[in-house]
């Protein structure tokens, strides 16, 4: 459905995308996961024919994004990162406008957007600019879906949206997948990775890993521990200074830790921490999540860059 081959793109001296290769098959929810500035928006804009790659090529539904861009623009749905509908038009006026752009009507494809649009329909005479963040996203998705595209590109659709709306939004994507629609979605939220069929982890224009979320997690190297103590402050620094520490990252209220040795010598670490004034130390082995994998891969990338 989507085929990206060795795409490079740079803005001046900054390499935004570095040799990107991705294949997405029909009916997949494919997540492009990475922090701000990783190159997600650039890649999506290339796929939506809005930007030209420097080198490499990409096809969406077997149409080239550079040469067949006019034909391709009839096919896909696109929801940009920023809310880009007309704030001075009402909800229904926006939807009607996009329906007529694609030469269709709201009624014709209503079944597709019904679940989404139903929720904002009570406000259909309200100006789009006066909607809440979550409702704006629903309207934008409705507008992107009104012409019944086989593939949609969503650039950070859940950024700036409350947790409840985020959850609802992903449920809607699942439903669209049920209609056989291919979904290419980018997000900076690592916890959304598990909601995708396959994901690509992207950092500084490099794809670090492409696989199903489970496989990526299972490929995590070594054992992962969660550590807490009564002295939250300073724990991060002290652990980083522990001689056999490999990686130490703050994860909310506790710290994720991996050791250079295959087995962590818990007693040794506990003594070390007590010596530094920590008490009530708890060290638990835990299962890694995507974010752990991302941080580990990011470390590898940096090491590789240093060599």
């Amino acid at each position: 459905m989507i085929s990206i081959k060795s795409i490079n793109k740079s803005y001046g001296a900054v390499m935004a995308l570095n040799n990107i290769n991705i294949e997405v098959s029909k009916g997949e929810i494919f997540g492009l996961i990475g922090p701000d500035g990783a190159g997600k928006t650039t890649l999506i804009r290339i796929l939506t024919t809005l930007l030209l790659p420097d080198t490499g090529s990409a096809q969406v539904m077997n149409k080239d994004v550079v040469n067949d861009f006019r034909a391709l623009r009839r096919e896909f749905g696109y929801m940009p990162g920023r809310f880009s509908l007309y704030e001075d038009l009402t909800v229904s006026e926006n939807l009607e406008l996009f329906a007529s752009i694609f030469g269709t009507t709201i009624e014709e494809n209503y079944y597709l957007i019904e679940d989404i649009y139903k929720q904002i329909e009570p406000f259909k005479d309200r100006r789009a600019g006066k909607l809440s963040g979550g409702m704006k996203q629903k309207l934008a998705l409705s507008c992107a879906m009104i012409h019944k595209p086989e593939v949609i590109f969503l650039d950070e659709p859940t950024t700036g949206v409350d947790p409840v709306s985020r959850k609802e939004f992903w449920q809607m994507l699942k439903k669209l997948k049920g209609y056989g629609i291919t979904i290419f979605v980018s997000t900076p939220y690592m916890d959304e990775a598990s909601l995708c069929d396959r994901i690509a982890l992207i950092q500084d224009g490099h794809i670090m890993s492409i696989d199903t979320p489970n496989k990526i997690v299972s490929q995590f190297d070594g054992k992962l521990y969660a550590i807490i103590s009564d002295k939250k402050h300073g724990l991060l620094k002290d652990l980083r200074e522990f001689p056999s520490a490999r990686s130490v990252f703050l994860f909310g209220s506790h710290i994720h830790y991996t050791d250079k040795n295959e087995e962590l010598r818990k007693a040794e670490l506990t003594d070390y921490l007590k010596l530094r004034g920590h008490d009530k130390i708890e060290i638990l082995e835990i299962l890694p999540v995507i974010e752990d994998c991302f941080l580990a891969l990011m470390g590898n990338l940096k090491d590789a860059a240093h060599v």
Partner: peptide, 13 residues
């Protein structure tokens, strides 16, 4: 500026 041109460009308009 508002980004609506971006979304229009990505349509057959």
């Amino acid at each position: 500026e508002l980004g609506t041109m971006e979304i229009l460009l990505a349509t057959p308009m």
